[in-house]
């Protein structure tokens, strides 16, 4: 394969190999970070914050290393598709889990700096109670 006038085993290939290695290892380290966050953080919302790291950036680094290792443009669209689906579905999960977590009070009030949702939810609860 000749890329930019460099033959196989040339400088560009070495650079790409290093990028593959670095992105693969750092993508795996993000999974460790998520695991540590899941274990150490105090409540559901801080754990959600830790869990999104491998979901978006970790998977991106892994797919980047796959694309650079395969080194064929035909592989790029499906890898982009995989990351696009992840970007599309991760916020849905986070929204639903966060909503359920707030409404079932799986949070530590003392860790919050600002709670804008409180008056909205209590207003909705009041209306629900009046309707009964």
């Amino acid at each position: 394969m000749i890329v930019l006038g460099l033959t196989e085993g040339g400088t560009l290939d070495q650079v790409l190999d290093w990028i593959v290695v670095i992105s693969m290892v750092s993508g795996a380290l993000l999974s460790v970070a998520a695991g540590i966050g899941l274990l150490r953080f105090p409540d559901l919302f801080s754990r959600m914050h830790a869990a999104t790291k491998p979901q978006v950036l970790g998977l991106f680094l892994m797919l980047l290393s796959v694309a650079l290792q395969i080194r064929a443009w035909s592989a790029v669209p499906i890898l982009v598709l995989a990351w696009f689906f992840q970007l599309l579905t991760a916020p849905v999960t986070a929204h639903m889990v966060g909503r359920a977590g707030y409404r079932t009070r799986h949070l530590k009030q003392e860790t919050l700096v600002l709670d804008d949702l409180n008056e909205v939810v209590s207003e909705a609860q009041r209306r629900l109670d009046e309707g009964r």
Partner: peptide, 24 residues
């Protein structure tokens, strides 16, 4: 149970990353 679903999501992503490592 929400913590458990969160942990399951992370576990699935780790499995996908493992498949990526195998492909690399």
């Amino acid at each position: 149970i929400l913590d458990r679903t969160l942990a399951l999501d992370v576990l699935l992503i780790i499995i996908l990353c493992g498949l990526c490592v195998d492909m690399v």
